[in-house]
Design a protein around this nucleic acid. Structure first.
Lengths: 174, 174
DNA sequence: CTCAGTGCAAACCGTTTGCAGAACG
DNA sequence: CGTTCTGCAAACGGTTTGCACTGAG
């Protein structure tokens, strides 16, 4: 936008790393690098949160860019395909997106059922599980998804209790 | 349905265990045990699959029961609340439901990205992860979700190869 | 009678798609 | 200049909801 560059960067020099990578992917695929695609990528990579499409849309609005939801969805699809971005579904009825260039390259998620805060953690044990699965079932793991839902420390400190509705241990009640 | 009992079982004797349990839950909550609720429960508990709402609807149609989708959804909500049934989302755009009275009380899922077959496996390692998370972050786990997506043995034997689109290791490419 | 449950159809809402016009190469 | 992208708005599809009707106690 600045420096009077009307078209999308035709040289990568000086561009932030994530734009260089995304640009490379697009060129590999024979797809044009447009300013809208760069704008969406910028929002996603400059945040370390798990962003919803609405989050992205309002972030774009704040920087003055008016980009349609359809374009955001289409660009996110490209980002996910490029493997630079990961798609999450925390059961909220919509998806969230998180770039993969953070300091925690591979991580899982803890989601507080009370305040919905998402905390990341790493797990070596997961590799063991995958190796076992491969050995026992001949199943080749490609992608995994581990989410632990529970009560975060802050909510415990705030005095929140877990309420249990439903049968506690159905099998034994029989 | 048989023995001329026109109304929902007013005594549990002779009813299958899952109906006794579901009935107990409903009574606990002050909700009526209706024939529709029993029919939906019967379908879910008599299958060991991961059923979609459409699966349930057609199973009901085959036994001659005509129950509206809304009622199925409402009953599934009750079954999930009762903890007798688990809700899954394997990223297909709709939910699947699985009862919890099988021989594998606690288990995780492997989903083949090629044929969508779901295989269940158990994982002691998960407990270790949860204990670690509790110790390290003070997070109290309530519910977890581990899904491993990959290629099942049958698809490998059928000669299916995994195709990789996208940047393989973005971080190192920078 | 009363009250909750049911079935239908409409509403909902995140996401996808079709298409006319703009932008890229 | 052809091809792809963008933005708008309409379509989509699983799920939820509003409401008149039914049925149980």
């Amino acid at each position: 936008m600045s420096q009077g560059s009307t078209s999308a960067a035709r040289t990568d020099e000086g561009a932030p790393p994530f734009l260089r990578l995304f640009g490379r992917y697009l060129r590999d695929q024979g797809l044009p690098v447009t300013s809208q695609r760069e704008a969406v990528a910028r929002v996603v990579f400059e945040s370390d949160d798990h962003l919803s499409v609405d989050d992205i849309e309002s972030a774009l609005r704040e920087t003055g860019e008016r980009i349609g939801k359809a374009t955001i969805y289409r660009t996110l699809d490209l980002l996910v395909r490029s493997r630079l971005v990961e798609e999450h579904d925390f059961g909220e009825g919509f998806k969230r997106y998180e770039h993969r260039l953070s300091n925690h390259p591979v991580h899982e998620h803890m989601i507080c059922v009370e305040c919905a805060t998402v905390t990341e953690f790493e797990s070596d044990e997961l590799y063991k599980i995958e190796n076992r699965v491969r050995a026992e079932y001949g199943f080749i793991p490609v992608r995994r998804r581990l989410e632990i839902y529970g009560l975060c420390e802050a909510c415990q400190d705030a005095g929140v209790e877990l309420t249990t509705e439903g049968l506690i241990c159905p099998i034994e009640i029989i």
